[in-house]
Each structure stands twice: as C-alpha cells, then as structure tokens.
C-alpha cells in the first residue's frame, strides 16, 4: 500500500511520518507541495511543522498549494487523509475539517509527552485502537487550541467525530479537550499531538502512535 507524505516549505515531520509508514509495513511516497500529482497513493498524510513559516495564519497559505487541490478532490472521493499538528491546521484552513486552531490559551509553545484518549475507532486512521484506550504521545505546538462555534461543537460530539481527547489538564484551551476530529465521512482526520514521534519506545514515550499507521494499512489491505 502506498501512503503519501506531503512536504511543504517549512514542514518538519515528513521524515518521521515516512518512517512510521514504513514501520507499519506500508510504502511511504514523498509528495511535493508544488506538484499536483498524488503519485497513485491510496492515503495521504500532511505532517507537522511550520509550513510557509506559519505566515498569515498557520496553514493559511499551504491550503492554496497545487498539491492541496488534488488532496481536496481525493478526500471528497473518500481517500483517507491524516493531518498531524500543522497538517491539522492546513485541513481546517482547507475546509476539509470544521473549526480552527488558535494560539494556546497560555501562549506557551508546548513540547512534552501528553496522554490522550482515543474516542472513536470508526475512522480508517484509528481502527486498531480500542474505544477509550489511553496512549502517551508527544505534543508540540504553539497554536493547538481547537475552536469552533457551539453548533459545530454539538455536531462533532453528536456524530461521534471527536476521535481523541486530552487526558488531565487542558494543555492548550481546546474546546471539550479536543485533540483530534474527523470529517462527516470519517476519512479525513486531524490530530494535534504527534503519533509519528511515538512508534518506538527507544525514541519516543511509547510505541502506541504506530496504531494510526497500522490502522490505515489494515483499512486498505483486506
């Protein structure tokens, strides 16, 4: 199975995302922001970083990169898309996911291990997890506070589209402790913490992040 990883100018975590895909048993395919060709991938990851220096708003300029036109089209046709951290911000700016990520409520850039609870395993990115399974993976962001209006929040909750929540104190002011959400169809997922940094206890706080990558492989290979 071919899983694409997009590199924008300022992307940082594309190598780790590719490594996680490889570790899960799939083939990682590099995609370039300036090239609309998705190279026959069956799923796409938008990794973390500071694309376009976070100028204007995080993700606001990346949204108009040539590759995003193809990603938006493919997502509409059901292709699984995962945005991690800055990738989550790009997906919100692209309107593939509702809401927006704003400045952390205490203004600090956070970089630490964070416990999260998986609250939906209905998406192709979370299906190998059990509901309410708690995992520890790194979080590192300055603008990770998930915000949306009350109506959108009620929809996300009622439709079971909150896929992960922070456990314990709210790290960034996100509404309802939201760490990740999906679109209505479930194929597009945004996640603020970094599963790709937690695929091996040797180099991360746990190996539990690998579940996102084995999930997509299990979803596609039947």
């Amino acid at each position: 199975m071919r899983v694409g990883v997009i590199t924008f100018p300022g992307t940082l975590d594309d190598k780790d995302a590719a490594r996680a895909i490889t570790r899960s048993g799939a083939q990682a395919v590099s995609l370039w922001h300036g090239d609309a060709d998705l190279k026959r991938v069956e799923a796409v990851i938008l990794p973390g970083g500071f694309s376009y220096g976070d100028y204007l708003r995080a993700g606001a300029i990346s949204r108009f990169a040539p590759v995003m036109k193809s990603v938006i089209e493919a997502a509409g046709e059901g292709m699984p898309v995962l945005g991690i951290c800055n990738g989550f911000q790009v997906l919100c700016e692209s309107h593939l996911l509702p809401g927006a990520l704003t400045r952390n409520s205490d203004l600090h850039f956070l970089c630490r291990d964070q416990e999260i609870e998986i609250t939906s395993n209905k998406t192709p990115w979370t299906r190998t997890f059990s509901i309410n399974e708690k995992i520890v993976i790194p979080i590192k962001n300055g603008e990770g506070s998930f915000q949306c209006d009350d109506k959108t929040l009620a929809q996300l909750e009622d439709q079971g589209r909150v896929i992960a929540r922070y456990v314990g104190d709210n790290p960034n002011g996100s509404r309802n402790l939201i760490a990740g959400i999906s679109n209505e169809q479930g194929n597009v997922v945004g996640l603020m913490p970094h599963p790709e940094h937690a695929i091996d206890p040797l180099t991360g706080p746990s190996g539990a992040g690998l579940g996102f990558f084995t999930s997509i492989l299990n979803s596609m290979v039947k």
């Binding site: 704003t102 952390n104 203004l107 506070s145």
Partner: peptide, 13 residues
C-alpha cells in the same frame, strides 16, 4: 480581528 467570542491570549497578555 478575532471574533469577540474567540479567546485572544495575546490581547490578554
């Protein structure tokens, strides 16, 4: 401008 209902931690600081 941020909408009035959106928290503005920079403004608060």
């Amino acid at each position: 401008m941020l909408k009035p209902e959106i928290l503005d931690p920079q403004g608060d600081a």
